[in-house]
Design a protein around this nucleic acid. Sequence first.
DNA 1: TAGAGCATGTAATAGGTTACATGATTAG
DNA 2: CTAATCATGTAACCTATTACATGCTCTA
Lengths: 198, 198
Amino acid sequence: MKENKSKYAIMGILSLGPMSGYDIRKMFQKAVANFWNESYGQIYPLLKTLVDEGFAVKSIEKQMGKPDRHVYALTDRGREELRQWLVEPVESQIGRIEIALKLFFGQQISAPDNIRQVEHFRETQRLESEELKALEERVKEEKAGNPNLPYWLMTVNYGQHVTSALIQWCDETLLALNKMTAKTKKGIKKGNKKECSR
Amino acid sequence: MKENKSKYAIMGILSLGPMSGYDIRKMFQKAVANFWNESYGQIYPLLKTLVDEGFAVKSIEKQMGKPDRHVYALTDRGREELRQWLVEPVESQIGRIEIALKLFFGQQISAPDNIRQVEHFRETQRLESEELKALEERVKEEKAGNPNLPYWLMTVNYGQHVTSALIQWCDETLLALNKMTAKTKKGIKKGNKKECSR
DNA sequence: TAGAGCATGTAATAGGTTACATGATTAG
DNA sequence: CTAATCATGTAACCTATTACATGCTCTA
């Protein structure tokens, strides 16, 4: 069980059509950037091993003025290997969530510092949410009729569900943090009712 | 910006009190397992560097029958270093979400295979959700009065928001996948109305 | 003329898991 | 008697990012 996920990610991209390493990178960045990424340092060496294993074939396209394109295409064996991975159930992966880790140690810093932290996180999620909305529109337009479209929209929807859940969590958490500061301040100075509405 | 997160994670655990590497591992497993993890292979070498950098001090507790405990405690400098990290805003990290990647390539496999995949994922989230509920109860009971408690509950809440959002996403996605198969089958045999309610 | 885009790749480094090595005690 | 728990640590290995090296063309 030492499966290399990057290998399958690259094979998956190649299943959409023959591509160069450069193209693959661009694909990662524009289509799946919100849940996956691969760098050249992974892509180029892995393309070589895919060829060695018989999962892909390479052909060279000469271009004028631009460097040659090394175009890779999945073989039948490669497609079969990919399918086998796709049907294998995903096992739960414990991601590293930095905001949660920092908040877990929140007692070490002041309440306003924690609030600042959560507010900043909320903003990143709001931006992400907007990007996903834009991506949804773009992909619906550009890929109308493409048989992959329904699946692609499901992955966008995944991100949308997560971001809105996190924004909600931020709001709840900010409320709780504000209550904590309010309690602390009450003993020092009362009548200090700052706006807590949201 | 080559910050080693594991280092800060370990310092954070040490901020809760002096501990051995063994204790630290246990802490990760029982308190933050749903969003962070560290293996011995990381913990022991990093504890050594923490001492070298002056962020922790080591003392040895002898025990009878059991191996010695190497107990580490944060120094003032260590606590300061930790605080500096805690207030630094988290930058968005693009996690690798395997279920989304597989679904992105869903066209390569059959609709029932995709359904099986999402149903399995849903089940992992349901289990996770139950574990979080149990963790919440346990921590509320065991850590009543502990000043860390409110922060710890916020991190549990994070997980709860995410899991319920994902369960909802699974239901939506399963509905869409079922519609897709229904459409495909309509042309072949009609009157075959399998239950799609949920 | 500077910088972005096209296009390939490698090397150094960092980050992380797993297996291994050791060995006593205790609970089932 | 077996397995788990206590307890430390290292070595081999895998995975991943970043910086580097090269060099042409097109646009601002």
